[in-house]
């Protein structure tokens, strides 16, 4: 958290809304551990990471939607037969990412 806190405070100080995405559950092999975080502002700027780069794009889109709606979201990413998941993790693991406005 320390490594992204400064950036978040800078964004908030200039009046930007900020969404925080946190890995809250992992299954199997995943690039980042539970607690990994990424912050996104309404301009689409981001800091930190929740994976090795494979789902960040999708999380940024969801985070901007959360900033608009104000409603938190729990997102699932993983390898699955369910083709509804169009964004997946190449490592074979799965993660849940909680996205909230702060």
């Amino acid at each position: 958290m320390d490594e992204i806190l400064d950036e978040i405070q800078t964004w908030r100080a200039r009046g930007d809304d900020v969404a925080l995405a946190t890995v809250v559950w992992t299954g199997g092999s995943t690039p980042r551990a539970i607690g990994a975080k990424m912050a996104v502002n309404a301009r689409g700027e981001f800091v930190g990471s929740v994976s090795g780069g494979c789902v960040e794009g999708a999380v940024i889109d969801q985070a901007r939607a959360v900033l608009k709606s104000g409603k938190p979201q729990l997102l699932n990413y993983g390898i699955s037969d369910d083709m509804a998941w169009d964004v997946g993790l190449a490592c074979g693991g799965s993660i849940q990412v909680f996205v909230e406005k702060i």
Partner: peptide, 19 residues
């Protein structure tokens, strides 16, 4: 965080009172 304290942050991530 800045004061480098030991603490826990609990968040409802599924179910009633989300967030």
């Amino acid at each position: 965080c800045a004061a480098k304290k030991v603490f826990a942050l609990a968040t409802v991530v599924r179910g009633e009172n989300l967030g």
